[in-house]
Design a protein around this nucleic acid. Structure first.
Lengths: 230, 230
DNA sequence: TGGGAACAGTCGGATAGCCGACAACGTTGC
DNA sequence: GCAACGTTGTCGGCTATCCGACTGTTCCCA
């Protein structure tokens, strides 16, 4: 029991940022753990939906979650997050409805924290509140970086970078080109053309609903990380 | 003395988000006020520069601050913030160098909070830490909205929206077209062309370093807020 | 008061990416 | 085994935007 619990604590601590100058103590983690519970979600099911009352935040423990928002013309993917991400906390703290929907794209295990239990815990454990703050700010920074990255980059560069980010340990990305296009906010045809060029350059191989990365350094070069911003 | 101080406290409370379900108490604000001091900056001077050690965060009390980052080819504006904004806190909490520069674009009064003084205060006053957290998350949400807003919109639509956001009470925007273009991530020429069309449509008037909004509803229509995303 | 710097306005060429359309291929279910 | 459907691959036309260049205007300061 001790082992599993300690592992759990270590993971919670990792999710909330760097541990070097403000260590979390055991009692903090105990408190945080007592304010929530694990939930499992199958691919395609929702953790929460846009417009629902935001009673909980989730910390993703396993799997991948897609955040998207409805518009009158279809839906728009905001981002895709994996292990360690904290989602739904913005709306929860503001006590307002969720402003996006969260859907599991692979089998997801998440730690669900209810507002009514969480807030007293944070008030009693300022270190945990500080951690959460730092975690949120890290996310803010990442989003700002994404804004800069999206601006003034060709579809080909964006595709290259996305493949580097999304490829699994075997170097494969299990996505249709249409989904990839939606994630990048580009058209399917443009993505297809970019992939064709990358294929001709022997950087990737393409198949049905699958893209395999065969030359990571080459892709990184195409993605233009050289002139990238921090 | 009491009046000015109370005003100060009320303003600090406002900057850190909604006050309805988690009120800040006097002692919290006293503590926060004691952890920093006011600084004044003339237009063109820096609050901090990219790469400097991040020892302080700033809460903008008056004026307008531009955040930008250097790249090998010139600089890129990340965002522009006004009264109530909290800047530099990300790098400060992470104990890393600032990753962007902050320059005053008008006479700025800001409340400077030093890390060494601030962190003990936050640990002693969990409500203040919660406030800060909520403030940061609000900013995160605004940034995510900006990402969505930027995607798939013409320069003309973006210009219209920017003018609505940035115009002062007299309906004027004191910006060169080049600065406007940088803020939008577009070229000066495209912005100029869009402004010419808006001028022809009697929605704005243009002058040297100045644009005056004369028809807000018309501009809102052009900006396409109808199909906008909350 | 004059000259230089910053800014506004405009043109033409080049191009990246969108859109519609369509054929070929893979997958799934009956 | 075949039909329906989702996916990939590719084409041509179209438009928004970028880029370089140039002119005329406004501002600022010596």
């Amino acid at each position: 029991m001790v082992t599993a619990e300690q592992q759990h604590h270590a993971w919670l601590a990792r999710s909330f940022g760097r541990t070097d100058y403000l260590p979390l103590f055991e009692r903090d983690l105990d408190a945080l753990a007592s304010a929530g519970e694990y939930v499992d979600k199958y691919p395609g099911t929702h953790l929460f939906k846009e417009g629902d009352e935001a009673e909980s935040a989730y910390v993703v423990r396993k799997g991948s979650v897609e955040l998207y928002r409805k518009r009158q013309s279809g839906s728009r993917v905001v981002t895709r997050v994996g292990e360690g991400a904290v989602i739904g906390d913005i709306a929860m703290f503001q006590n307002r409805p969720y402003h996006s929907s969260a859907k599991a794209v692979s089998p997801v295990k998440a730690f669900k924290l209810d507002r009514v239990k969480l807030i007293p815990v944070l008030l009693d454990h300022p270190r945990v509140a500080m951690r959460w703050l730092i975690s949120g700010l890290n996310q803010l920074e990442a989003t700002q970086r994404r804004v800069i990255r999206l601006m003034h980059r060709t579809v080909k560069e964006q595709v290259a970078e996305m493949l580097l980010d999304e490829s699994d340990p075997y170097g494969e990305v299990q996505l249709s080109q249409a989904s990839l296009a939606t994630l990048l906010g580009a058209s399917r045809q443009s993505v297809n053309e970019s992939l064709a060029e990358l294929r001709d350059a022997k950087l990737v191989e393409t198949g049905y609903r699958m893209i395999r990365v065969v030359d990571r350094p080459g892709l990184a070069k195409v993605s233009g990380r050289g002139e990238a911003d921090l």
